[in-house]
Every structure is written in C-alpha cells, then in structure tokens.
Design a protein around this nucleic acid. Structure first.
Lengths: 146, 146
DNA sequence: GCCTAATTGAAAACGAATTTCAACTTAGAC
DNA sequence: GTCTAAGTTGAAATTCGTTTTCAATTAGGC
C-alpha cells in the first residue's frame, strides 16, 4: 500500500484536531501522494476531477492547507505566481533546481551549503527558522537549444 | 546628484527601445532610487502620491517593469504575496535574511555559498542563470520575546 | 436512529497584477 | 514653431489565483 504511514499521520492529525475523516480527504491525500511532484492546487484538482468529478476546487484547496498544517506537505512558490505543494520529508531537507525554459524541477541537497547558511545567520545574531534556496538554471536538455 | 549614472542607463534604455522619456518616468525613477529598500508597487505609489497626486498606480507598475527590463531593478517575492522591487547592483549579488516576526529584511553575501551553488548545478549538468537564497529567521530583537 | 458540529461545493469575494481605452504628451519631420 | 504619428497616461475594468460564504450534506458520538 502506498504510504500508509503518511495516511496514518493524517488520520491522527484529524482526530487530535477534532476534525472529521471524510471520503474527499482520503481521495485527495491518495492522489496527492501518488502524484508525487510539485503540484499546484489546480494541478491536483484537475487530476482528481478525472477520476471523481464530485470534488470541488475549494475542498482541494482546504485539504492541501490541512496537509501543510499537519506537516505532511509544504507550500512553495517558484516565481510563476502559483503556489505548489510537495510532500514533506522532515528527515531530509532539500532545495530546488528549476529550469527557466521547460519548468522542470529537480531536488538536491548539500550539507555544506546548509552549514554556511547557519554560519551566516549566526554572524548577524539571527537564528534560522527555515530557508529557501532556488537555483534557476537551463537544464541539460534546454541549454542545447540556446 | 543622486545616482545620475543609473538615470543615464535608463535614458539609454528608453532610447534604444524607441520609448519616450516622460516626466512621470523620471519622477518614479528618482523616488525609487531615493527610497532604496525593498518596495512593493503599492509602497512606491503611495510615496509618489504624497509629492505628486497626478501619478497613477498603473504607471508605477509599468515603470517598475521597465526598470526590471532595463536591468536597474529586480523583482522579488518574499512570501507575503506581494512583489517587491529592489535596485539591482550587478557587481555584487546579495541574498536576504527575513525576520519572520517583524518583517525586517537584511542583505548579505557569501561567496563560498555562491561557489557551492555553481558546483551543485554543474553536477547535474545545469548552468545557473540566477538564484535566490532567502533565510527566514528570528532577528536578534524578535528572538528575545520568543 | 438522532443530534450536533464539521464538511462540502458552487458561487461570490478578495487582493494583487495587468489590460483597456480615450485623452494627452513626446519627439521627430517639416 | 507647427504638425503628426507613435508612445504614454490614469481611471476603470479585467484577469488570475486564492480564500470565504452559505445553504445543503455528512460524519460520528450518543
């Protein structure tokens, strides 16, 4: 079964918050986990629509916010003005390479960069809560055409 | 005189693009340079309004886009859903520390981080066009209260 | 089953960005 | 200086993604 652990986490979250477990929420979580990538609300809504036309945009929107609260998803912005959500993995943080040409998004992580960030913030007397590092690139495929 | 070099660059840009030099554009550029910080369209519009009520929001918006095209300003997003513009300095790139609590923005640069970014992108066969590194922190003042 | 509170989805509202369009201004030609 | 074509302006309208409203529906404890 796909990600039964995450599903459990979400159910627990709903319980502790006094919220209800509904069919829509289950469907949305399943599709969200299946899709994997960096989805906008619109993307997910359209995917769900195909399988079950009875799901509304507002519900998808609200459920994604619940995912974020629950800690199983994170909201991100890559500069195209649309919010995207990705399944969050609290053990390993990662940053993004975004192709300016085709929009492809690749994840990466580099502990040396992370350490330097902490150092820099510390020099200013600040403590890092979170950070975002986006590298806007031409991917290997797109840079051929340039 | 404040930033006559930048003003010249903008005039040249207008000329080469077949655009016209207008009073509004001059006023907007002057106020933009004077203000310095990370301004939203709204911010700049309000500042201009005080001195000259005859300037429209649309013109400020369009002029800021011209600045970005011309290379004398850069558009940024810090997650509050509003675009901000800052005067760009092509010689020295910098990143941002943003206080989650009070919204204060501090600039910094660290060449070691920059180098590692190039290295990481290279490992994936990508070439960096630009990047964004935002560190969301509690600044020294705000972290006292936490 | 019953009741209460949460949830749903369509539509409306929202906020920021962007476009429209008629009136106006600029800059080059004469 | 005058004329003219082309670019610019600002108020209002439009767009686009996000968020809220509200009446109808559903979940889940009793």
């Amino acid at each position: 079964m796909v990600n039964s652990k995450t599903k459990g986490k979400f159910k627990d979250f709903l319980l502790t918050q006094g919220l209800k477990s509904t069919n829509q929420r289950e469907l949305i979580l399943e599709e969200f986990l299946r899709a994997g990538a960096h989805l906008s609300t619109e993307d997910l809504y359209l995917r769900l629509r195909k399988k079950n036309p009875r799901i509304g945009y507002a519900t998808v929107h609200r459920t994604l916010k619940l995912f974020a609260q629950c800690g199983i998803a994170e909201q991100r912005h890559f500069g195209d003005g649309q919010a995207r959500y990705e399944a969050s993995d609290h053990d390993e943080h990662h940053d993004h390479l975004i192709c300016i040409s085709c929009g492809k998004i690749v994840e990466f992580e580099d502990s040396r960069i992370e350490e330097l960030q902490i150092e820099v913030a510390g020099e200013h007397g600040f403590s890092i809560e979170r950070h975002r590092l986006d590298l806007y690139v031409y991917c290997s495929h797109c840079s051929i055409q340039t």
